[in-house]
Structures are given as structure tokens and as C-alpha cells.
């Protein structure tokens, strides 16, 4: 393919400047009203809805030629969709890309927040499928917007109450709702609740893009992000019994890998960069010698 001549017909980072300006305005508004879902005129993107079109539009609008981009999906740089999006920006923007959390200026993510703490000059862009935290309690947009406007969040706690009444504990494990700066209840995107505390008072700017649902929202740096709970049933994150089988890391989020059809399983870091840098630094887990089949 003569990719170069073809791509020359597209603007830097794919979107035209008018569209970028429109999206940047939405982003600025989102930053000004933390946790509020700003509607924006989401564009058709060259990947399907639900595959990160919101995140891609946000990234395309904030990306500059000097940025260093990292893209992860499920915590990993090498998952197919992350590879695909990274290649897309290499192709249409020619920016430098990296797998290193520390070296990136923009990190686009689906379903995870990197384990390494983010810094002030970094922006984390989340891909969001359903931006509305009240959606599964109330399907109508007209009603949920009113509920946000009037701060009517009782229903959210009814759901948590039901969880405790049924299971003895809150049974929401991902997309766990948070309250931002004491005002808006927000969906953190389907990250495991393990990652919720990382959003709180983060020095990095966090942007959320939902392409199909046409919403952008934001958590500015150093903003309070509190996971909803009850006084007598406080929010808790997942714990794993074992450390990572490859790098021995504890207090990180682990993926389960099925080894064979006889029930063999191992648990490894979902954040591949974190795992690799630990291994490079000499950390070892119980199966780090073995080759993955």
C-alpha cells in the first residue's frame, strides 16, 4: 500500500482543525465542571463505535507533534486494540509512541489505570462505553440529566443497599460509581474498582471520551474523587491472594491466564509495562522461569 500518499489527504491526527476546536471546547468545559458530561458532536471515526472512538477523538484533539503517546487496553500495550490505535496515531500523526508509562505525555486507556503513579505533565484519556452512571437504573437520558441537575442520587445508593442486603457487601466490581469534587456522580469507565483510588487527587489530567454516546467529561488534576459507599460498609478494592507469577508484584491488578484444559491457571500483572520493568529490575515470581505455552 502506498500509505504515505493516501494519508497525506488527512489532517494531522486525522481530525480536521474545526472538529478539534469543537472537541477542545468540550474538553475545556468538562475540566471547568468536573464530572459533568459535556455533550459534543462526536464524529464518525475509522474504527467502529464502541472500540474507542471517544478516546481517539479526545487524543486526536489534544495531541501535538512533540507528544509521546502510550496506548493500553486491559492494562497491556500489546493487546490488539491498543496496537491498532497506537498504529493509527503513528500513521496519521507521526508522533513518537512508547510503552513506558513514565515516558508518555498522553496515555490512552481502556479499562485500566497504569500501576505507576502518574505525573503532573501527563494526560490520561479513557475510552468510555456508557458515560452515564445512572443508566442502568434509569434508561432515559432526559430523566438522568434531570437527576444530575437536581443532584438526585438516592437511586444510586438504593442499588448499593440492594447489593449489601443480597450479598452482605457491595457487589459492583468495575465501573464503580464515584462522586467528583462533592458534586457530580461519575462513571469511571469500566476500570476495575481496584483503580478507583488512583483517580483521587491525581496530579495528572484525566479526560473521558464516549464517542457513540457523544459525551466528554473530565477530572482535573488534584480533584477529589470519592467512591460511593455507606458509612458502615466503606468502599474496598479487590485483593489478590497471590503476587504476580512473573514479577512477584503485590498490590497490583492481576489477570487470570488459563494454562491448560485441566484447570491450570496463573495470575500475572495486567499492566504489562509494570511487569516487564519489574522483571528487568530483577524481580521474580514463582513461574517467571517457565515459558508460556
Amino acid at each position: 500500500m502506498n500509505a504515505h500518499t493516501q494519508v497525506s489527504n488527512y489532517n494531522f491526527a486525522y481530525l480536521d482543525e474545526q472538529t478539534k476546536r469543537m472537541i477542545r471546547r468540550a474538553i475545556l468545559k468538562a475540566i471547568a465542571v468536573p464530572g459533568y458530561q459535556v455533550p459534543f458532536a462526536s464524529r464518525e471515526m475509522p474504527m467502529p463505535y464502541g472500540w474507542g472512538t471517544g478516546g481517539v477523538q479526545v487524543t486526536a484533539s489534544i495531541l501535538g507533534p512533540d507528544d509521546v503517546l502510550k496506548v493500553i487496553d486491559q492494562g497491556a500495550d500489546d493487546t490488539t486494540n491498543a496496537v491498532s490505535i497506537r498504529k493509527f496515531f503513528q500513521k496519521v500523526a507521526g508522533v513518537e509512541t512508547t510503552t513506558s508509562t513514565e515516558d508518555a505525555t498522553i496515555i490512552q486507556t481502556r479499562h485500566r489505570i497504569p500501576e505507576a503513579p502518574l505525573q503532573e505533565d501527563q494526560i490520561l484519556v479513557y475510552q468510555v462505553p456508557i458515560p452515564e452512571p445512572l443508566r442502568f437504573l434509569e434508561p432515559r437520558e432526559t430523566e438522568t440529566r434531570k437527576m444530575h441537575a437536581l443532584e438526585e442520587y438516592g437511586l444510586m445508593h438504593v442499588k448499593l443497599y440492594e447489593d449489601i442486603a443480597k450479598n452482605g457487601h457491595i457487589a459492583t466490581t468495575y465501573a464503580y460509581p464515584v462522586k467528583v469534587e462533592g458534586r457530580y456522580v461519575m462513571d469511571p469507565s469500566p476500570t476495575p474498582k481496584f483503580d478507583n483510588p488512583k483517580m483521587h487527587m491525581s496530579p495528572a489530567l484525566q479526560l473521558f471520551g464516549a464517542g457513540r454516546e457523544k459525551r466528554i467529561y473530565a477530572v482535573p488534576p488534584h480533584t477529589e474523587v470519592i467512591s460511593l459507599d455507606f458509612e458502615d460498609h466503606p468502599f474496598e478494592v479487590q485483593r489478590f491472594d497471590k503476587p504476580c507469577a512473573l514479577c512477584g508484584a503485590e498490590q497490583v491488578y492481576l489477570d487470570e491466564v488459563v494454562l491448560d484444559d485441566r484447570g491450570g491457571r496463573m495470575f500475572v500483572c495486567s499492566d504489562t509495562h509494570h511487569c516487564e520493568s519489574r522483571q528487568a529490575a530483577g524481580h521474580r515470581g514463582e513461574m517467571s522461569g517457565e515459558v508460556l505455552s
Partner: peptide, 25 residues
């Protein structure tokens, strides 16, 4: 559901990770 599993993930002939850019060729 699983990152890796017996038999592996096999992408096959899929549009999934193509960029929807018109290919004039």
C-alpha cells in the same frame, strides 16, 4: 474473557483492527 487460553486467540480474516481509511488502490 481470557487473555490467553488453550488453543490461543486466533484473529483470522477480520476487519476488527483495520483502520477504516478508504484504500484508493
Amino acid at each position: 474473557c481470557y487473555k490467553d487460553l488453550p488453543g490461543g486467540q486466533l484473529l483470522g480474516p477480520t476487519f476488527d483492527y483495520t483502520h477504516r481509511l478508504l484504500d484508493e488502490d
